[in-house]
Structures are given as C-alpha cells and as structure tokens.
Design a protein around this nucleic acid. Structure first.
Length: 871
RNA sequence: GCGGGUAUGGUGGAAUUGGUAGACGCGCCGGACUCAAAAUCCGGUUCCGCAAGGAGUGCCGGUUCGAUUCCGGCUACCCGCACCA
C-alpha cells in the first residue's frame, strides 16, 4: 500500500535520529543527490569506444514513454544495472545505454482524447521518465540516449529501409486490415473488442490495402538454424520462435474438380492420412471462393460473413467451425473412385500453406469438429497397437496405417514418404516445405511513426526518396479532430515533385510499424554518427549484446524482427554481424494484490478481462486507498471493509499499481532496488508488497549500521570464511542472473558480521560486503565506502576475489539413512574413508534402534555426503 | 483452437541438478530494552504427536538403495498468437 504524504511525515519523525538515541540512520536523500552528481560529474558510466579494456554491452529493452516509469520497468532496469555495475568492477568497459521507443498508438490516442500533439505528449513523458530513472541511480551512459521519434533516429531508419529495398528485401502487396466502417480508420487487433471497434462500437470489417512487406521469409531457414547457436537464450523462447517460424515438411498436391475445369492446390503435413480424407476445404478469401461467389450469392454472403470479423488468429481459430458446401466434388488423387465434397470453411487460413486443405477428421481435431457438425464420414487410417475408435477426439499419436490400400501396415513416416513418392512419380504433387512464418507487413495507416520514404508517381510508379532528401520529416502541424491518418489530409506535406520525372506526385502516407524502430536501436546505441545509421566497425566492437534483458512478451515478435534486421543488414553488406543478442534474459512481471470494497456487486464485465472503461473502475481500490488495521484491510478514507483479491499483473484497470515516486520518496532508491531483486527469481513474477519493501528498508539500515560499527585488531577465521563464501556465491549468482539468491547470501553475510566481534578480519569483510552489495545498493555503498576512509568510488573499485583456501571446509556432515529414510546425521573429517564412515554410522544409537537387530544387506556410501543402510 | 510456462510451510521462495526438503526474506509467537511506544536485538516457527516417532514438495502411477529433481498419465492457474509496446 502506497503511503500518503501524511504517512511519510509521521514515519520520518519516527525514523529521524534527531529525536531519540536510536542509531544513526542512512540519509538516503542526501546520499542519492551526492553520488548521482558525483557519477555524472566524473562520467563514471560513460562507455569509451577507445578503451583498451574488454568491451561488453548490457542492454535492457528500452521503454515506451507512456507517461511514468512503473515498478515493472524498475525491476527490469535494476537487473541490468546490477550486471552492468558488476561487469565494470570486474574490469570490463561496459556499454549500458538508455533510450525511448517513442513512436506508437498511445501518443495518437492522447492526441485524440486530450488534444495534445503526439510529439508534445511523448517528449514530456520522456522528460518525466528520464528524471525518474535518474533518481534510481542507474549506471547508464546518458550521452548515448536516443528517441526513435526524432528525425536523427528515424531518418537513418528510412535510409536503411531504402537500402533493404535496393537489396530486394522489400515489396508491396495487398493485405488485410481491420477496418472500422464508422470511424473510417484502420484498427489494431487490440482495438477490436468482440469484433467491434473500441471507440465506434461498429462491426469491424476485413479490408484489403496495398502495403509494404519485408522479406523475413527469405531468412526463415537461417533464423531457425540460428536458434541452435543461441545457447544463452531461454529454451522456452527458442522453442516459441521455432514454433513461430513453423517449418513443416509435407506434400503439396492438386485437387481436380469433377466435371469442371477447375483445380486447386492443397498442402498437408500428413500425406499418410490421405485415405482418411472425407472433405476438402478452402479459405473464405481463396480465389476459388471468390470465383464461385460471383455466381452464388449465398456462398458470397457466407465468405463475407467469415471475413467480417477480426484478423487475429486466436479469434479465427477459437470460433465455431463453420462451412458452406460449394456443391463441387474433387477426385481423390490416390483412388479416382473416391470423390470428396468441397467446402468454404472459416477455420482455413489463406495466409498459411495454399489456403486450402483436405480434411481428415479421424486425425485432426479441427477437421473432426467440422465433420461432426456437417455429418461427414470419419475414417481412421492410423491405429495404435490397441486399436482405435474415434468419438470426439482425433487421434494424433503413432501407429500403423490401416484402411489405406497400398499404405496398409506402414509406419506414419514410411507412408508419408510413399505418398510423396507416388505423387511425384504420377505428377500430381510434390514434397514441399512450408513455413508458418509470413512476410512482415510494416505499413501502418497512422501518423505517429517513421514515414515510409517513397513517392508515388502516376508516370514512374513507386520512386524511393533520394538520399539527399532524407530524412522525410513528419509534419508537426496536424490535427486529430477527424478520424483517419492526418498525413493523408495534410494540406501540403504529401504533395511533391516526382524525383524521377519532376511531375506531380504524392508521398507515401503510411508509416512504419514501431517494431522496425526497435529492430536496430542497439546498433545506434553502439555507434551514432550523424551521417549514417551506425559505423559498422565501431558498432561491431560492442556487439553482439552480451546480455539483453526484457519481458517475455517480446519472446517472438521483437526478438525475431531484430534477428531478421541484423541478418538482412549483413546480407546487404552493412555490418558483419549474425545474431544481435548473445545472452537473453526474460524477467517476470511485477504483480500486486487487488482490492475492492466488500460487497461490491461486480458485473461480469468488470470481473473479467475488460478493457479499461471508467464506469467499471469504481469497484476497485488502489493500494494507496487501502490500509491494514490489525488483521483487517479497510478503505483508508471510510474505514469500510475491503476484500483482498488475487495477486495479478499491475494494471490501471484493476488499480493495483504502485507509484514509484512515492515509494522512492519514502524508502529511497537503494531499498527499492534491493526489493526489486529480492524474494522472487527474476524470471518469475514478483509480488510487490509494503511488507517486502519494509524488509528492504531494514536491510539497508542494517548494512549502514555495520559499516559505521567499531573496528579492532585481530583475525577471525570463521568471519573470513563467511566473507570468502559470500564473494564466491554472490559472484556466481550475479553471473547467472540469480539475484534473489545473491540477496539471500548477502543477508547471511550481514547476520554473520553483526554477530562477529570487531576485528581486522571483520572490518575487511564489511568492506567486502559493501563491494558485493554496491551493484544493488550503490548510493549507500558509496557513502559508506567514503565514510570508512577509502579513496575513490566503490563504483570503480575492482571486484573482490575469494581466497580459494578459505572456501574449503575440513569437516562435513554426513546424512544417515536406513532404507532411504533419514535417521541421523554425523560430522566427520572431510574425505574420510568408506570403512571408517561405515563404522561410525553402525555404532550410532539411532541407527542401531532403526535397524532393530537386522543386518544391512547393502551399504551405499556417497563420500562426504550420505550413508544409506538397506536392511 | 494452437503454442508455451508454472505448481514446495501462513507467505515469496531455496535445495550444489538423483543424495539431510524448507536456506534467505515476509508474517506470526515468545523474550530483552523502554514509564510507554517506535526503532533495535535475542529465541522459536512444515504438519501430527507430551515424547519416541510418523507424514510431507498440486493429483495418480512408475523407475531407483534413495525422487522436489527422471518417466507416464491427469488437474489447476498464468502467458503468447503476427496492427499493443
């Protein structure tokens, strides 16, 4: 629960050392100001291209400037910051930059809703968010800051786009968009709710527009193969990309329509099940469907109805399977005696394969659902050893082929090969590889994006904007009072002379997908000359990014597009780089409890995943509006009971967000940083809680008291060992990005040091503790380092190294099991022989009792670990 | 619909990857200090049981001397699905 300002005053009074004899407290506000200024003045975190030290590039996915930093951002950047600071201490020249993914729809929404220009809104947000990031004390090289909405960024992007075009990797084709017939505007998938435009409520149509595409499919094979080299990526992300690219090997063959001259191709990954076919189906937007629709109004109406909904795959595939029988029949390619009906079906996608399928209900769930609905035969052709009966679940497992003439008895793989061989020898089909991956449509009918640098001339066709006329700058004098793209209706901007024939021509008014902006920004961070997008030699010195950190929601699109751009730029000779990100880490979200007034009668709409309308928000209370009184949770203002709901992702609609500014003001940057790393493993969600941040605050104070505690002479081996173990453990944990474990180890060291008597060893160990904790709580570490009389900053002090001799223990505790159950344990010298350990174990009281007179028939000894007596 | 992930005390999680389940944090209980509170410190805290002992890592089954870990089958929840960034 976010504290109010009143709260803070009371707290500060209590925590202020001036009013009591409590130990001195860490004055975070003063320390933050002092050290942030010191780092900035000394350019401590400036990355030097010319440094002789080994270079490393630590990057967090740059934020969209939505208004304010949220605690999810904080967690993301703290993780990167700990790694960047650690690497710097370890002797690397670290590039750790920050910028803004500044184009996008929210800015246009703000313009429409509040009459603010998208640029004004975006730049104000950037200023605010930069200030917030600076308050957190991140070790960033701000001299490399960039914003994708500025011409000095997107102008270079336009040049790269033209380079790709010259390299044959850009083309234009018709493609479907969500069209709002009332607002006369194109809608993003997220703006389509239950098939209707979010603002107008009108039923959304699919409309074909001529759009620009990047040939990512040219790289499908190498993007897939390249995944094998990314061994520092999470397996799940590689798997998701593999599935996304979706390589399928199968058979493409032609169905000939009976008694007509028509034919169409289908693709299947299961040619082995061809004898199980009971129908053929084509997509509603298949050319044949269009041809038939011209003379069949009912069919045309059916197709139109299928297409009158959103384009999102999830929507298309989750819908009830519907079909329209065209009345056509096609011949079975393996047996002319068999004919199959042809349907237009809503679950067949024109974008995949050939936009037509053969339906084998017994072995494909979608086909089975369809067959049951329309009363089509279901013939199993693959049977497992224990036989088969299809009811309402298709069988997709292994087995041998049955009911299939010459294929009977074969395995699935053998049958696939046999059918492909026959198709090729008889000339009606070929073995083919198809990809789920489609070319990347980059045209957006929006204002706030990178203008696509081409000109349309009636005489010359599409003409690239000449290089000396780049950047094509977005005009700032636009309005959003009318729906549609302001670039389209701007009075002068789009009217230009054709660069080729000098005749009247118009600019392209579509802009590039914002994913294009984020597909090469890492190159610009590494090298930002004014005359080019990047210098290939300078950029190559920093790249690939050693560790990239961001949300798993980017596992597919952003990461695949960035990989594609890197390879595309390599193909056209722009840079010698294959993969942009060597290490990838996907961190979890920050979540929070939800609150609502007890007894609030929620409608289904507000209970479910609704989309943020204000009229349903009233039910929810924000953490700041709620407080704990004893065991009860009540609304702060009224004292009324509050129901505590599930812990979920922070969202404005559920009001379960916390404001980083308020937390920073109350607890300071170091406590916030520490809590961001505590408790949950970084790849998993972190539940933000007041108790958690309180605990972080206590840790900060404990370290501060330790740092200021008394010194003495003398050695203390136990303390030295504890410090050495912490060095080894924390270093290894940070290397593996297991920050929660590093935090736990630091707690252990703090406890040991608090309990140890003052000694020279202890003083040295406190310095070590400060160094290990410095990446996490840098302000306190600097302040304490200075107070303890060290010259220079802890930020530039070398990382501690553990003495290996101190890491070895001379005794071990051995677990004693009888029949696999733990009965006892005993301490022995390390490396004791099996015989001596066995003798010790057999003499133990508890062992004798547990054996109850029986003689062990087997004794398993794991050296220095465990003994198991099997009786 | 397709694809991916997760499940361990009151709670977030840890467990050297097949070898003492519950490190560390939070919460809670008890104590010290204090006129009192705050802060701080000390002790306890998986469950059942006075104890001896027994049970226990979502559920069912398997492999093994030994399973949170490996295998098979479920259940529940979360995430992604190409114009959100």
């Amino acid at each position: 629960m976010t504290p109010t300002r009143d709260d803070k005053r009371i707290d500060d009074g209590n925590r202020d050392d001036g009013r009591s004899n409590a130990p001195a407290r860490f004055d975070f506000a003063a320390a933050e100001a002092r050290w942030q200024a010191a780092w900035s003045d000394a350019a401590t975190f400036r990355a030097d291209d010319a440094s002789p030290r080994p270079k490393t590039f630590i990057l967090e996915m740059f934020p969209y400037p939505s208004g304010k930093i949220h605690v999810g951002h904080v967690r993301n950047y703290v993780m990167g910051d700990v790694l960047a600071r650690t690497r710097r201490a370890q002797g690397f020249e670290v590039l750790h930059p920050m910028g803004w993914d500044a184009f996008g729809m929210p800015a246009e929404n703000a313009a429409i809703e509040r009459g603010i220009h998208p640029g004004t809104w975006t730049r104000a947000n950037i200023t605010a968010m930069r200030g917030q990031l600076q308050r957190l004390g991140f070790a960033l090289d701000w001299s490399r800051e960039l914003a994708t909405c500025e011409p000095d960024y997107y102008g270079h992007e336009q040049a790269l786009f033209l380079d790709l075009m010259a390299g044959g990797l850009v083309y234009r084709k018709q493609s479907a968009v969500n069209w709002d017939p009332v607002d006369h505007t194109v809608l993003a998938n997220e703006q389509v709710i239950d098939g209707r435009g979010w603002r107008s409520g009108a039923l959304v149509e699919r409309r074909q527009l001529s759009q620009w595409f990047l040939k990512i499919t040219d790289f499908a094979d190498e993007l897939l193969d390249g995944l094998a080299t990314l061994d520092q990526w999470p397996d799940k992300v590689r798997l998701m990309q593999e599935n996304w690219i979706g390589k399928s090997v199968g058979l493409r063959f032609t169905f000939d329509v009976i008694d007509r001259t028509k034919a169409f191709d289908v693709f299947t990954t299961r040619p082995d099940t061809l004898f199980g076919a009971s129908f053929a189906a084509i997509a509603p937007d298949h050319p044949l469907a269009k041809t038939l629709g011209a003379t069949n109004p009912a069919l045309a109406a059916f197709s139109a109805a299928c297409l009158a909904t959103g384009t999102a795959a999830a929507e298309v595939e989750a819908r009830e399977k519907l079909g329209y029988d065209t009345g056509l029949r096609v011949a079975h390619p393996l047996d002319a005696a068999i004919t199959l009906p042809v349907f237009v079906a809503n679950f067949v996608l024109m974008d995949y394969g050939t936009g037509a399928i053969f339906g084998c209900p017994a072995h494909d769930q979608r086909d089975l659902d369809f067959a049951r609905k329309y009363g089509l035969p279901v013939l199993p052709v693959v049977a497992p050893d224990d036989g088969i009966a299809i009811v309402d679940e298709a069988y997709v497992g292994p087995g041998q082929i049955v009911n299939s003439q010459f294929l009977d008895g074969m395995t699935i793989d053998a049958a696939k090969a046999a059918v492909i061989a026959r198709a090729e020898s008889e000339g009606w089909g070929t073995g083919t590889t198809v990809w789920r991956l489609r070319d990347w449509g980059v045209s957006r009918q929006r204002y706030w994006g990178t203008p696509i640098p081409v000109i349309h001339c009636k005489t010359c066709g599409v003409v690239p904007v000449p290089r000396d006329q780049l950047p094509v700058v977005l005009p700032e004098d636009v309005t959003f009072d009318v729906p549609g793209n302001p670039l389209d209706r701007h009075a002068t901007w789009k009217h230009v002379a054709c660069p080729s024939c000098a005749g009247p021509a118009v600019r392209e008014t579509d802009t590039l997908d914002t994913f294009v902006n984020s597909s090469w920004y890492f190159l610009r961070f590494a090298s930002a000359p004014t005359t080019a997008a990047f210098d290939p030699v300078v950029a190559k010195a920093w790249l690939p990014v050693a560790q990239y950190i961001g949300g798993v929601e980017h596992a597919i699109l952003h990461l695949l597009y960035a990989r594609f751009w890197t390879r595309a730029l390599r193909r056209i000779g722009k840079i010698d780089l294959t993969e942009p990100f060597t290490g990838l880490f996907t961190q979890g979200m920050v979540t929070h409890e939800t609150y609502r007034r007890a007894g609030t009668n929620l409608t289904a709409a507000s209970e479910g995943d609704f989309e943020g309308d204000n009229d349903t928000v009233g039910a929810w209370l924000s953490p700041a509006e709620v407080e704990r009184r004893g065991d009860a949770v009540v609304e702060r203002a009224t004292g009324l009971a509050v129901e505590v709901g599930r812990v979920i992702k922070m969202s404005k609609s559920k009001k379960n967000t916390v404001d980083p500014d308020a937390i920073l003001e109350r607890y300071g940057a170091d406590a916030v940083r520490w809590f961001s790393l505590s408790d949950s493993p970084p790849e998993r969600d972190l539940a933000w809680s007041e108790a958690g941040i309180d605990g972080a605050w206590r840790l900060v104070q404990r370290v501060w008291r330790l740092a200021l505690s008394g010194a003495a002479d003398g050695n203390d081996v136990a303390t030295a060992k504890a410090a050495a173990k912490a060095v080894a453990g924390v270093t290894a944990d940070i290397d593996k990005l297991q920050f929660n474990k590093a935090v736990a180890r630091l707690y252990e060291l703090v406890t040991v040091l608090e309990r140890a008597a003052p000694s020279a060893t202890r003083s040295a160990a406190i310095d070590t503790l400060l160094q290990l904790a410095a990446p996490m709580i840098p302000h306190l570490a600097e302040e304490a380092w200075a107070r303890r009389g060290h010259g220079g900053m802890i930020a530039t002090a070398p990382w501690p190294i553990a003495d290996p001799a101190l890491l070895i223990d001379d005794t071990v505790t051995i677990a004693i099991q009888v029949n696999g159950k733990l009965k006892d344990s005993v301490e022995t010298t390390k490396g004791a022989s099996r015989e001596s350990v066995e003798a010790i174990v057999l003499a133990r009281d508890k062992v004798i009792r547990a054996l109850d007179g029986k003689v062990p028939r087997k004794v398993i000894v794991v050296p220095d670990r465990l003994v198991n007596l099997v009786a």
